[in-house]
Amino acid sequence: MIYPVIWLLMSSFKPSEQIFQTAGSLIPTDWIWTNYSQGWEGIGGHSFGVFIKNSLVLVVLATIGAVASSALIAFGFARLKFFGSTFWFGVMMVTLMLPHDVTLVPQYIMFSKIGWLNSIKPIVIPAYFGAPFFIFLMIQFIRTIPQELDEAATIDGCGKFRLFYRIILPLIAPALATAAIFSFYWRWEDLINPVLYLNKPSMYPVSMALKMYLDADTLSNWGAMFAMSIVSLVPVVAVFFAFQKHIVEGISTSGLK
């Protein structure tokens, strides 16, 4: 199950020319760290730290946007009665199932016409308009909160926004955490959007940097590529360990039935 990952990890400590000669034996005969130092020097004149910074900027900006806007929208759907709410809820559920590919080409054309190519705007800004999967997750969560709470607050003269901000938002913290974790994973791993919109190596996120290693390397420097692959997985695994309770809880409490 986990063997491929261990193989990758161990190979990152082997000298490049030995990786395939000794592919069968897991433990390196001599442990070396030079793959990491070489890999960290980066590629195309940019250190790997630059790529990590780029990824973090993308991930953090997009995640804040997606979680905050989705919470606002979810509250609207779950707690407010207004004309057309069922219709828009239906639209949202259809959007949830819509293949991303359908809008790929026209979005690219649109963003190129307004001059957003080669910037992180096409990747970050749409996140601020809600993500259907997160909205759905949060709606399910809000529905488990007793309505009486809202009524009590309203009687006390609490407006809708304060109700959302002061009462509902703290209560749905687990769902917010789940959404944030998923958003982190998806943005960190995303490849197609950076391929389309980021064309300068100085702007590359980690996923694109790894791809660049793959393109540039003709058999020579496997070790560095493996080492940086491991580095790229570290934040993902760290986030998982830090928040693993939220991941399972968030899914089970969303009541997928």
Partner: peptide, 30 residues
């Protein structure tokens, strides 16, 4: 009440029009 409802879901409505519906329509034409 209606306006408050739309205020809360407005990001979705705007995002849907700008990033889904109009692009999808454009792609059908293209």
């Amino acid at each position: 009440n209606h306006l408050t409802g739309y205020a809360f879901i407005s990001p979705f409505v705007i995002g849907f029009l700008a990033f889904i519906l109009i692009p999808a329509g454009a792609s059908l034409y293209l």
